[in-house]
Amino acid sequence: MSDDDRRAEIRRDYEAAHGEWDAGTQAVLDLDPGFLAAYSRLAAVPDRVGALPEKVRHFVRLAVAANSTHLYLPPVRGHIRRALEAGATPAEVMEVLECCATLGIHSMNIGVPILVDVLEQEGLRDGAAELDEYQERLKAEFTEKRGYWHSFWNEILELAPEFFDAYTEFSSVPWVSGPLEPKVKEFMYIAFDTAATHLYTSGLRLHIENAVRYGATAAEIVEVMEIAATLGMHGVFEAAPVLAEEARRRS
């Protein structure tokens, strides 16, 4: 098989598996077709195994690409289009994005415990204060709407009850009115918590526990992680066209 024929075959296989082709993919094909073929095989494993329904695999890809710690925008339209083609509704896709929007709370999950440590270190705090009636109501409301409670909420509830009140309403929108089943919502949190651009391990463990309680299987959760594990290629797709352009300039 000639080099041109081999490249054409790789492109056909890639487009059949992934449904998209752009300048970044073309540049990788031109520079190292074997590498693109190896990536194509890696990224297609979830589609070959199929532990998750097709539309849910596209939801996970969207959650990995569109969350605020990654924001790799080139494939977002394709993931949305393919999810819709696989039977997803706009409301379901919107709910994926709503789940991703909660990632920002991790500033509080990480920052408030550090603040508490500093206050105790400086003698400005001596243990947790008792929750008042308002805070107890917020805790009960969060637990009812979100279906769990975790100790990392305690200090946020104590020190920033009004913020926690507003966050409860904000984060609960998908849980109150959203169409996705609970374990699929948890898959979205797992997707961006396990992504290499975030790696929020406390949340990852929590949402794996929640997903299992909602009936998720090990195979389903592993497949979420497999999809997230391919995001390292996004940098290659961005940089390869630059390399190709610079190489042409020098030649």
Rank of each mutant, 00 (worst) to 15 (best):
M1W: 03
E9Q: 08
R12T: 02
D13C: 04
Y14D: 00
E15F: 02
A16M: 07
G19I: 05
W21E: 02
T25N: 12
A27W: 00
L31P: 01
A38T: 08
Y39A: 10
A43R: 14
A43T: 08
R57F: 01
V60N: 04
L62Q: 04
L62C: 02
A86L: 07
M94Y: 06
L97A: 10
L97S: 01
A101D: 00
A101N: 01
G104N: 00
I105A: 06
H106I: 00
L115G: 02
R125G: 02
R125H: 05
Q135M: 11
E136N: 11
R137M: 12
A140E: 11
Y148N: 06
L157M: 09
P161K: 06
D165Q: 13
D165E: 10
Y167V: 10
T168A: 12
E169Q: 09
F170D: 03
S172H: 08
S177I: 14
P179C: 08
Y189G: 09
D193C: 14
A195W: 04
T197E: 11
R205H: 10
I208A: 14
A211V: 06
A211M: 05
A211L: 06
R213F: 02
Y214G: 05
A219V: 03
E220Q: 11
V224N: 02
V224P: 00
A229Q: 13
L231V: 15
M233W: 13
V236N: 07
P241K: 09
L243D: 01
E245H: 08
E246I: 03
S251F: 08
